[in-house]
Amino acid sequence: MSKFKKKRGKSVPAISTASLPDIIFILLFFFMVVTVMKDADLKVDVVVPEATELVKLEKKSLVSYLYIGKPKEKYQNVAGNAPRLQLNDQFAEIGDIPLFLEKEREKVLEALRPLMFASLRGDRDVTMGIVQDVKTELRKNGQLKVNYSARLRANEL
C-alpha cells in the first residue's frame, strides 16, 4: 500500500499561517466589543476614595456621572485651583445640575427613569463643602439614588 508509505527523511513542512489573520480578527472583535471609549474628557483630577462596601453599577446607560476634583494643571489658569464640578465635557456650576439631570433623563425610556443612578466621582481630597452642595442639588431635583464611586480597599485600615 503505497498510500501509507512512511515519508522518512523529508523536511518538516512549513506551518501554514493562513489562519493567523482569523485568530487575530477574533481577538480584534473581542476588544472592539469590550472597548468603552472614554465618554468624558476629564478636566479635573479624580482619585476616587477606597471602600469595601462596593456595589457594581450594571447598566451604564442609566448612570449620570458627576465629577468633582481639582482642575488639571493645564486648566488651572482658567478654572482656578479650587475643586470644581465637571458635567459631561466641561466645568459646571452647581446651578447647572438641574438641566444636566433633565437631559440625562430624556435619554432614557420613561419606564426606566426611576432606576437611574447618579455616580459621584469625587476626588478623595476634595472637601465635603462642594460635595454637600452637589448632594443638596441632587436631592432638590429628585435624583435620590446616588453612588459614591470608589475602589476596593486592598489593605486593612
Binding site: 472597548t35 468603552v36 472614554k38 462596601e53 429628585g142 435620590l144 446616588v146 459614591y148
Partner: peptide, 26 residues
Amino acid sequence: AFLLLIFFLVTTTIDIDKGVTVRLPP
C-alpha cells in the same frame, strides 16, 4: 489586523464602575 488589535488594546478601559450606594432623603 495586528495594528487594529493593538489600537483597541491600548484604548480599552475595562471600566468597572463600583461604589458605595446611598439613597438620599427627598
